[in-house]
């Protein structure tokens, strides 16, 4: 279980998180939604230890984050932008990333599923955005971590790869992983997520299941529910 307790963060004058309190339920897929600048990325980065909140605390299975690095052994992270050292090959990159973790990895299986074999010995700068995103996904999932954080996982994926991704997410959930997703593609969210958290201007405006959201906003589908939430805010 991931717990955010009263997280506040300012960048200069700009208050990005204004006291975030929520729990990510164990073994479920939770989507963090919100427009650009709503604080999604900052929230995720706080969880990963890349941003230090001004106040509040984050707990992972009762372990309070304290600036040490080890807890990240438990986290698989898929960053939004797949950019790597240009002159390394995909194989070298995977080797490097696996060398920084003690745990076993199942990169081989994932490579097979995405049919990445033929690209492994090419320099990363020569690979297309979609292929790089696949490698990105491999790197996030290969360690069999208990927590998965997927930031815009669908970027650049072709339909086949997208299908594989959805299958993978389902399998991971099956295996009891706790998954946090952000995405602009609300169809995708609707399909994979159990719960949504809606962030707006540094506050949580909604947390709960998608069904509950559509019923409370009296809309059909996630897209119009979100639209309704935003309209309410501005009204």
């Amino acid at each position: 279980m991931i717990e955010f307790k009263n997280i506040k963060k300012k960048f200069g004058q700009l208050e990005v998180l204004k006291g975030i309190d929520f729990e990510v339920p164990q073994g479920k897929v939770t989507a963090v939604l919100g427009p650009n600048g709503s604080g999604k990325t900052t929230l995720i980065k706080s969880l990963l230890g890349m941003v230090f909140p001004d106040s509040g605390s984050i707990h992972l299975d009762n372990y309070r984050l304290n600036g040490k690095a080890e807890y990240r052994n438990n986290i698989g992270y898929l960053p939004q932008i797949a950019r790597f050292p240009e002159n390394l090959t995909a194989r070298e990159l995977l080797k490097m990333v696996s060398s920084v973790r003690a745990s076993n990895n199942n990169a081989g299986e994932l490579i097979e599923r995405f049919k990445l074999d033929e690209y492994l010995d090419k320099k990363l700068q020569h690979l297309s955005g979609g292929t790089r995103q696949k490698i990105n996904i491999v790197m996030a999932l290969m360690f069999d971590a208990d927590y998965l954080i997927l930031d815009e996982p669908t970027t650049g994926l072709d339909p086949i790869a997208l299908r594989i991704l959805k299958q993978l997410i389902a399998e991971q959930k099956e295996a009891g992983k706790t998954i946090l997703v952000t995405s602009h593609i609300l169809n995708f969210v609707e399909e994979v997520a159990d719960e949504v958290v809606f962030l707006l201007e540094g506050h949580i405006h909604y947390q709960g299941s998608i069904e509950k959201l559509t019923s409370t906003t009296n809309t059909e589908g996630l897209e119009s529910a979100i639209a309704r939430l935003m309209e309410d805010q501005h009204a």
Binding site: L48, M50, Y71, N73, P79, V100, I149
Partner: peptide, 12 residues
């Protein structure tokens, strides 16, 4: 960007 990726790993 790659640095950010590394930061998400258990590295000091």
């Amino acid at each position: 960007d790659f640095t950010e990726l590394l930061l998400a790993h258990p590295l000091k």
